[in-house]
Amino acid sequence: MRKRIFLIGVGGQGILLATRLIGEAALYAGFNVSMSEVHGMAQRGGVVESAVVFGNRHSPVLADGEADIVIAFEPLEALRALPKCNKESVIVMNNSPIPPFTVTSGISDYPSISDIEMIIKSKVKAFYSFNGLAVARDAGSDKALNVVMVGIAVGLGLLDIDEALFEKALASLLPDRLLATNIKALNAGIALGQNSVRS
């Protein structure tokens, strides 16, 4: 088996931790893992992209059209990730927007969320849009959005890794004081994903 997952969002949303969470869980599941990420200036509010690939693979970098799954932390970034997809790709998106600072100070044309959703839906096999931020907030912290998004992908059954391994992976990545909130966020994400599969 081989899974190629592309994550995209805005600096500060915790994308690198989400990437590592999937990677560590995949390692516990016995896969070889490679990941690719961008550091430095982009982390200060710019676009952050990363990839995690498990299974048989040499390069950690995903080519256009290669993503099996895209986890987008922000609607505009979901749109930006489309070239990484193909007709069989699945996109999971957090639908709470972060407007970019642009020449006109963020009030340039940010497309409506429903427009974005319509465009994406027409291009890939399956598309899921959630307010992950609200789920994170309920769990106790906006910052847990990253873990919620991974949880949703797990709940949707996209990752083929036992869900218990994600909790184990969280414990290996986070300090104890943050663990309770994040486990709550993970489980809330998983539940949300599972419910939308059933419904």
């Binding site: 059209g65 970034e77 489309l82 007709k87 600072f101």
Partner: peptide, 17 residues
């Protein structure tokens, strides 16, 4: 060609914290 063409997405630049 089997992947979607890029959509026009407003660029996003980094900024001070």
């Amino acid at each position: 060609e089997n992947y979607p063409e890029p959509e026009k997405a407003t660029p996003r630049r980094p900024t001070l914290c």
